[in-house]
Design a protein around this nucleic acid. Structure first.
Length: 670
DNA sequence: CATCGTATAGTTTTT
DNA sequence: CTATACGATG
């Protein structure tokens, strides 16, 4: 406790009522949450099992668990829940699935599965998908986040196009149910609906969770807000931590106004502001404050720091995107040699993933180790999706999506026409495609050879399922992978054997992490079903990330991905109109979120910060002129140093910049 | 069923 | 420009 400042202590000790902690960037919010949990357990005699802390990312949950376990140990902490919203939702659904009419081995569809399903439904209905699947998927997700069910969506539909979406929503939801499957949004939505419908179930969970702590509250959407509300009930024992200035996910349904809403929900809400920053120099904070001051605020907040004033913020103009990347890489190389830290102390942040391409190239050319986070996720890889489909079918034979993905991977001579016949039959009988394989009726509608192949597959799958159920799950799974000779299939379908081996290694990583959760068995009822479900939520994939973190590599990521992280030296590249306020955001007049994005980028830096922009940039093969971002004009002028190519001198002087540093910039560019 | 060619689109993405 | 996805063709 003595390590906390007075404001933080206040937040920790206030446990009897609702509390809103407005935590600016780098103000030690995670410390507040973890120490508060420790305080409640150690000083107040609260049982661990009566406390739940919710985060948005697995990474945040993992870190929080780690830090709590350093503060408290022993039996008092048992049963403490530190998890993501989605994981808690999954946990609730797994316990109460019969209430919801789901069978125990349900599948979870990720965004890709969901989109494929929507495409299928559209093609079934209209013969083509008209490139609407993407739009409809978003619309459905928005409805779900807003707790609007399909019937309501149809009733409220606004125009014929919207009606089409609403009807697609209805069919989508029915299809999911038929597949005994859920999507990510359902993981929150279904518990809320269930709690509304069955108050006695809600009471059970309220008895379990007495005190709730929520991190990054500005990122909650309506369904998450309701979940929190319901679990808290009228006890009001709730701590939420958030920062409206770091709300950068509104486009995904987040409602930063949930922060202000709390004041209406709880008239006795206590408010604590954490404004002392332990991360950045005063100059960086001044710059951040200046930028964010251009946004309207419900809660006023000004970060300050005792870490010294620090170096000026550099704004670097580059001729084009190539010069920009070149400049960043060579500078990092140079600064490291001069003893300004190791590679891992540097981060390059950008607005869009496309900017990583060139950057990566330049890092390779100069032989600088780097790590790009984000991009194609582990679970988007084809080999992983294949094996996941096998696992899903293993635990849920109603999962037609999984069935279709793997029934002919590797090749089993089961082609499109066979599957079409099987599909029609299954739909008529109202059963899954897997179950349809073994029905006598299909012999009428399909050629004998096709039926034989289908039955061969289903019989094999049944054998695997049996072994799995009889207690040797992992062995069954490993055998399954070797049975289908997946490795050979990969070699056949990869450009080189090196690629194939890499892919096979991914498969083993997947299986290993499945095994490691089974061994840990820390949760209530840990079986293959639970582990596979958690796997889709990317929950148990910590191993590979750990060894990456220990390596000395420059960190490359989007501004979005950088939230919550910090680096001694930060470069934000492409600080230009149309990029940092993104073109679409300008058109939609949504500059405020872009400004927050900029704010997030700036506040990642501990010691030095550099912002770069280009004069020209090649886009879709065309050379276009770029303008420096409006956010550059919002920075405190006296704290900037302008560098860059010579043409810039004029421009800088117009801005009242002193010639000396301009000359220095000219010098540097040679 | 695989391969090649053409068409098409091209922010951010915690789960 | 470039990656991807889908369609036609052998």
């Amino acid at each position: 406790m003595s390590k906390l400042n007075p404001r933080q202590q206040e937040a920790v000790k206030y446990i009897d009522g609702p509390l809103l902690v407005l935590a600016g960037a780098g103000s030690g919010k995670t410390s507040v949450i973890t120490r508060k949990i420790a305080y409640m357990i150690e000083e107040c005699g609260t049982k661990g099992r009566n406390i739940a802390a919710l985060t948005f990312t697995n990474k945040a949950a993992r870190e929080m668990k780690e830090r709590v376990s350093q503060l408290v140990s022993g039996p008092a902490a048992r049963g403490l829940i530190v998890s993501t919203f989605h994981n808690l939702g999954l946990r609730i659904i797994r316990k109460e699935h019969q209430c919801l009419g789901y069978k125990s081995g349900f599948s979870i569809f990720d965004a890709q599965d969901a989109q494929a399903l929507i495409k299928d439904l559209l093609i079934q209905e209209h013969g083509e998908d008209n490139d609407q699947a993407d739009h409809i998927q978003h619309r459905i997700s928005n409805w779900k986040n807003d707790m609007v069910n399909p019937e309501q969506a149809i009733a409220q539909a606004d125009g014929p196009a919207d009606m089409l979406c609403a009807q697609a929503y209805l069919r989508y939801q029915r299809a999911l149910k038929a597949y005994n499957a859920l999507d990510f949004d359902d993981l929150i939505l279904l518990p809320v609906q269930m709690f509304q419908q069955f108050p006695e179930v809600l009471q059970r969970w309220q008895r379990r969770i007495h005190y709730l702590l929520v991190d990054e509250y500005q990122d909650t959407n309506i369904s998450q807000y309701l979940l929190v509300q319901m679990l808290i009930g009228d006890r009001g024992k709730l701590t939420v931590v958030g920062d409206d200035d770091q709300s950068i996910y509104a486009w995904r349904g987040a409602r930063p106004e949930n922060l202000a809403q709390l004041q209406d929900d709880y008239p006795n809400l206590k408010l604590v502001k954490l404004e002392q920053n332990y991360r950045s120099t005063a100059r960086i904070l001044k710059a951040a404050n200046h930028v964010i001051d251009h946004n309207p605020h419900v809660f006023e907040k000004a970060l300050w720091s005792e870490l010294g004033y620090g170096d000026p913020i550099r704004v670097i103009r580059c001729r084009n995107e190539e010069a920009e990347c070149e400049r960043v890489v060579t500078e990092i190389l140079d600064r490291r040699v001069r003893g300004h830290g190791q590679y891992a102390d540097f981060a390059v942040l950008y607005r869009g993933n496309f900017q990583a391409r060139l950057l990566e190239l330049k890092f390779q050319v100069h032989n600088v180790p780097y790590k790009i986070s984000g991009g194609t996720s582990f679970f988007a890889r084809n080999e992983i999706k294949d094996i996941m489909a096998y696992l899903r079918l293993l635990i849920n034979r109603d999962d037609d999506n999984a069935f279709l993905r793997i029934v002919n991977v590797p090749r089993r001579k089961i082609g499109a026409s066979t599957l079409e016949g099987l599909g029609t039959y299954a739909t008529e009988r109202g059963i899954s495609m897997f179950d349809a394989c073994d029905e006598m009726g299909i012999e009428q509608s399909l050629p004998e050879a096709s039926v034989k192949r289908l039955r061969q597959f289903s019989a094999w799958m049944n054998r695997v399922t049996q072994r799995c159920d009889s207690g040797e799950g992992m062995a069954a799974i490993r055998e399954m992978v070797s049975d289908i000779d997946y490795e050979a299939w990969l070699h056949q379908n990869s450009s080189s054997s090196a690629v194939a081996e890499r892919r096979m290694a991914n498969v083993f990583t997947l299986i290993d992490s499945l095994q490691s959760t089974l061994e840990k068995a820390d949760d209530d009822e840990d079986n293959i079903q639970a582990a596979v479900a958690k796997l889709v939520l990317r929950d148990l994939m910590d191993r590979q990330e750990e060894d990456d973190e220990s390596m000395d590599q420059v960190q490359l990521m989007t501004l979005h991905a950088s939230k919550g992280l910090e680096f001694p030296h930060v470069y934000v590249i492409g600080v230009e109109e149309e990029i940092l306020p993104h073109r679409v955001s300008i058109e939609e007049d949504n500059i405020e979120e872009e400004r927050r994005l900029c704010y997030v980028g700036i506040t990642r830096a501990k010691q030095t910060l550099a912002l770069t922009y280009c004069g020209k940039r090649k886009q879709y093969g065309e050379l276009i002129d770029c303008a420096p971002s409006r956010f550059l004009d919002e920075l405190p002028y006296d704290d900037l140093v302008w560098e860059g190519e010579e043409k810039d001198l004029e421009l800088n002087q117009q801005r009242g910049q002193d010639t000396l540093s301009g000359l220095k910039g000219l010098f540097d560019s040679f």
